[in-house]
Design a protein around this nucleic acid. Structure first.
Lengths: 113, 113
DNA sequence: ATCATACTTAGCCATGCGCCTAAGTATTGG
DNA sequence: CCAATACTTAGGCGCATGGCTAAGTATGAT
């Protein structure tokens, strides 16, 4: 794994925007066109497209052109790096807790002997 | 849950920077002072402090002043919103897959009858 | 052929981010 | 008391982000 993981950075920063999270939440329920996705967002279309572009650049969605519409779909496997990083981080933390715990246990045993 | 969840946004955008992720990885192994944390990062101290400030603002770390040092510690519970959002998103997606699956199963049953 | 729809491109603006240097404050060791 | 250490504050620079309007292109409907 690279020290500077741009995939991970792009993924997390893409998730850092509420508009983009709402788009992903919507797409979890299935494919949709740009205008369907944009409808509930009080925002100009070009601005909205910017968010889609960033999601696609981060690999979190895929898009394809069908007629004059562009259909967007979730790329759920793209969440794995983020999920994995958080899981690793958590196990590191819990591992540290465990060692602390066993250390305290050792101390207590020593004291009681 | 708020529609515009700034906690979640702050958390994800904080995780979007490789320097900040490395700080968190280091802190998973235990408390450290600012200069200990900064040592492996080829960066001016004010710049580095900016990252710590953002991590603290996002609630991912806590800091306290001890003498002329500032000690930093991980706030592991602060990862929960991010982890939860990802888990929810995943279950939404998998739920959709399940429904698709049972739909296909239904179709196949219909066809075989 | 014409018109409406659905993006798409171009360009502008304000704010924030990530980096820097220089200078200040607060503690501690001698 | 004095100097060194460990931040901290102030201010500046360039670029990216997130928003806009206006105008263009491609496709579908009449």
């Amino acid at each position: 794994m690279a020290k500077y993981d741009s995939t991970l950075s792009d993924c997390f920063t893409a998730l850092g925007d509420p508009t983009r999270r709402r788009i992903l939440e919507r797409l979890a329920r299935g494919e949709a066109s740009v205008s369907e996705l944009a409808a509930p967002h009080d925002m100009s279309l070009p601005s909205f497209m910017g968010h889609l572009t960033r999601l696609e650049a981060a690999g979190l969605i895929t898009t394809r052109k069908q007629g004059r519409s562009r259909l967007c779909a979730l790329a759920p496997e793209a969440f794995a790096p983020a999920t994995d990083w958080l899981a690793t981080q958590r196990s590191l933390w819990e591992g540290r807790l465990d060692r602390l715990d066993s250390y305290v246990t050792t101390l207590m045993k020593d004291r009681s002997s």
